[in-house]
Design a protein around this nucleic acid. Structure first.
Lengths: 339, 339
DNA sequence: CCGTGCCGGGAAAGCGCTTACCTAAGGAGG
DNA sequence: CCTCCTTAGGTAAGCGCTTTCCCGGCACGG
């Protein structure tokens, strides 16, 4: 691997001069030298060692992103937004998948700190584990304390700026739509219990139920893993526990799609016999049949806003919290019961 | 930011000793000192500067991945496989999106080289631009020359090991199925002309046509961008140019889904009036209606194999080329014409 | 013709860490 | 009891780069 010293030697100049030419430093340099150095760079295929540069001039350039799983469309969309903004700012993005393991999240914060990233963006639901939460929060604060910036998406109990989707309100809108359509026997496919996203969305649904003088008995709530297959299994459980269900609300689109698949395999008409509703409005929601009625969250935009917060807004003073509204998208998968 | 010197000072030892304790070096150290140092680490929330470590001990630990776009399900799946293997090897992954711009790919190779990554994995189709290809190849060779490892997915004209999906054969299988079902007026939605993936898949389709004594006139081939919306537009063009089409073969699933959406919006029955076939077997292929008949490529496995090649196989000697078979998956979207 | 100022370029320090090498102290062997 | 080896720990060099500081040479003004 060619080093700066190699280049300098070859061009017959000092490393200092070579460095100045390569980095376009303000210090003026004779044209002849410039050309010699540039030629040497080309001949040796020299690329500066980014680590050495970072060490010498502690100007952090990369940003870290911790998500549950990039290949999950929910995070893929968020990541797209994050990447776009990061690229606009000339930042390199290091993506870490926690695969929903809190401990791995902790490790990654440490690792990103070691990498001297300029900012850390944490995307994805928080956990109902106060020891863990405190631990994470502590690590983030330490990181912020040393000049790092942090933004979180979908959590609010942490250090740093936050972009929080209206999960509770989304759940409420879902419930409202269901009651408006006339459903009374509603099953819910919830996400993992440990996630605050699950709790928040469920709370919204419960609020809507209460306002209509009803409740959500626990036999009508099945917990799944936020993925398609466990969503299908949960739908089966729900149907077994409560054969008269006229609607199933899933707390994300993947599980709704799983429910759709199960219903189709059993020959149950959607929305004729059972309506199915999702949450998130992932791109595929409009392509399944029937197209999914769901709650839209502007995922890519949430990512973009979080990255913007992390990169541009001051770290001093109160952390900013940006609320992101949820919106009901009516498509074909929900209709009045028995119709 | 606390440094090793801070820790050493606080523990009353030399930086050397502190380093040895923190990194668990083989050199024996008294228990009392060990505890003091560890305590200092905890108190100062010390995290070693990864760049300084890398500089001092040139042991490359990160690996770079260049894809067209992670949020595209095709790459999301591949990336999942890549990540899994990388994590098993304790490697950090830096993901770069080229957004299908060759120049950006070039830049990223440079950037990853600067980051001293242990390996670079390039995923996604190659381009029909020999100047660019030579350029890229050259950069990769230079990188390999300095001890870097490279693996490419879906290209073969390059330095480094390769995992190549049977694109031509997949196209052939698609064609065979179409002719077997009895289709004769077949429209094709191709991907970007500049991509070798497009050419290869199309070539397979053409071979099947030839074997059945037919050709693929250019008015029956529409070029799109490998995404859903341009796929829908291409389907519309195809229908306009050739109203009697009984089948549309799309060269990836996203475009097939776009075609499905267009057909549905026009009230055209699939597969009753027009059959639709896809390529890749992305996860959503089974969830659209009708479920997509498509060519399966084991995407995640391709990613895993590429990362394995990059991380474990020798860089000396001939680069390895691993062929990945394509497989026809029959679902509901293709049927005999007119029935 | 000399002093002053400016400007292009080099020497060297230092970023935070690892590690080869060295040293002082203690124990074993003669 | 002295020498020599072992061992725990420290000293310092150096990884590849940037940047401050300095120096020599030139042009200019007096």
């Amino acid at each position: 691997m060619a080093t700066l010293a190699d280049v300098a030697r070859r061009a017959g100049v000092s490393p200092a001069t070579a460095s100045r030419i390569i980095n376009g430093s303000p210090k003026p340099v004779t044209e002849a030298l410039r050309e010699r150095v540039l030629a040497a760079v080309a001949e040796l295929q020299y690329v500066p060692n980014a680590h050495a540069q970072l060490l010498a001039r502690p100007q952090r350039t990369a940003v870290g992103v911790i998500v549950h799983d990039v290949s999950d469309p929910y995070f893929a969309e968020i990541t797209r937004g994050l990447q776009r903004v990061a690229t606009e700012h000339g930042r390199l993005v290091i993506i870490c998948n926690s695969y929903r393991e809190p401990d791995r999240e902790l490790e990654y914060v440490e690792l990103l700190r070691a990498q001297q990233v300029a900012a850390i963006v944490l995307a994805g639901s928080g956990y109902h584990d106060s020891a863990f939460t405190r631990n994470l929060d502590n690590k983030l604060r330490v990181y912020e304390h040393t000049g790092g910036r942090v933004a979180v998406i979908g959590r609010h109990e942490h250090a740093g700026h936050a972009v929080v989707p209206a999960n509770e309100m989304g759940g409420y809108l879902l419930g409202e739509e269901l009651y408006r359509l006339g459903h009374r026997r509603i099953g819910v496919i919830a996400g993992p219990r440990a996630l605050t996203t699950t709790t928040d969305r469920l709370a919204g649904l419960r609020r809507a139920a209460r306002e209509h003088g009803r409740a959500l008995p626990s036999r009508r709530v099945a917990y799944a893993e936020f993925d398609r297959d466990s969503g299908a299994a949960a739908a089966a459980d729900l149907l077994a526990a409560e054969p008269g269900l006229t609607a199933i609300a899933a707390l994300n689109d993947s599980m709704a799609i799983g429910a759709l698949a199960l219903l189709r395999s059993r020959g149950v008409a959607v929305p004729g016999e059972v309506s199915v509703l999702g949450f998130d409005d992932m791109p595929v929601a409009r392509d399944v049949t029937p197209a999914l009625t769901t709650i839209r969250l502007p995922l890519a935009e949430m990512g973009a806003r979080a990255m913007t917060l992390a990169l541009t807004s001051s770290t001093a003073g109160e952390p900013l919290v940006e609320q992101v509204p949820a919106e009901l998208i009516r498509r074909a998968s929900a209709a009045p019961p028995g119709g």
